[in-house]
Design a protein around this nucleic acid. Structure first.
Lengths: 188, 188
DNA sequence: TACATGGCGACAGTTACTGACACAATGTGG
DNA sequence: CCACATTGTGTCAGTAACTGTCGCCATGTA
């Protein structure tokens, strides 16, 4: 029995993804996942809080990258341009994760329970970005609004990129933020 | 045994809210809720899909009101102004629901499982609004972006209103949308 | 070589949720 | 007024997600 449980953790994640793809989320039990990973069900729950959590990983990595990128933007930049710049910084990571993301996509699309968890992860990123903006001196209320709106624009750009890979993510990102500016300009 | 089960349904909702407030979400079982409502646990699951769903109701009412309001906005209006007008139409309903909303708030704030479900309800409203915008001829991609951003701005206005009741919801709504316009204008 | 640490298996237990069947109350057609 | 279908409910059995507890054993350290 290895002292380092990270190997078992990785096997569990891979086994879960495979089984969710093969049989669907609802028709695979946590016992199934554990068996394929070569551990017991109890060990599964030592590594992951629940059956949904095993599906989402590396989110902390993106959060750190984004908050660091926000902090690194030159002082004086406005909130939304700051976020847009941070999202551009994250493009390489997103591109690197694309193969895994593409495998996950059909599973999420098919199971509401995973969609809910994805929304929760999204919301966690929003609060992290809001905190990062406040650390730059942005007023709390404005930071919350911009973090939410910016994150949504970012998500939509990624979604569009996934559906139309003929243009790179940077282009989709700039286009989405431009659409946001134009749409918001129609207010008043 | 009454033929109309809507009474039992209402009792279950009230019982759930009371118990979640008294003991917390995690420490109340579905059997507890059913017992207080005077029915069996099986009947609970005939009325609600799961332990979280009993907490959220009347969401379909808001959805209908908002989509109808979007459809009623004069043709030619841009997406975000359309949504802002629809949100203003919904103010009386929100004000009317305030007592219930205030009771629910501390429970949601204390339990992640309910926060997730609340996010899912929010997302459902976003897609409903996106569809309503497309029905007005807005391009699909723009509709998705505006529905998301508009709904977020709406939610933030409601949150601010809840924390600062010295000004009415209409005022908070207009202020949030103005902040959105100004923040987005800084993009380029 | 003794000891502390930490990941793991084994096992029992709680609880959310589902399927199947029976019954009772109500609305409907004759 | 009497079949009869409909519908909400109770009962019971069963599955599966998750938790607490204990003991084992492999590894890192004195």
């Amino acid at each position: 029995m290895p002292r380092d449980g990270s190997e078992a953790r990785l096997r569990l994640q891979e086994a879960a993804l495979e089984l969710y793809l093969e049989r669907g989320y609802d028709k695979t039990t946590t016992g199934d996942i554990a068996a394929r990973a070569g551990v017991t069900e109890r060990t599964f729950f030592r590594h992951f809080a629940d059956k949904r959590e095993v599906f989402f990983d590396g989110e902390s990595q993106l959060r750190e990258l984004l908050t660091d990128a926000v902090a690194a933007v030159p002082a004086g930049a406005k909130p939304l341009p700051t976020l847009r710049a941070a999202f551009h910084q994250a493009v390489p990571l997103i591109e690197h994760n694309l193969p895994v993301t593409e495998r996950r996509y059909p599973v999420i699309a098919a199971t509401p329970a995973l969609q809910e968890r994805a929304l929760a992860k999204h919301a966690a990123l929003v609060t992290a970005l809001s905190d990062a903006l406040r650390a730059r001196g942005v007023a709390a209320q404005l930071a919350a609004l911009c973090a939410q709106v910016g994150m949504d624009t970012y998500s939509i750009a990624i979604r569009r990129w996934g559906a139309d890979r003929t243009e790179n993510l940077h282009t989709h990102l700039d286009r989405a933020f431009t659409e946001l500016r134009l749409a918001a300009n129609a207010l008043r």
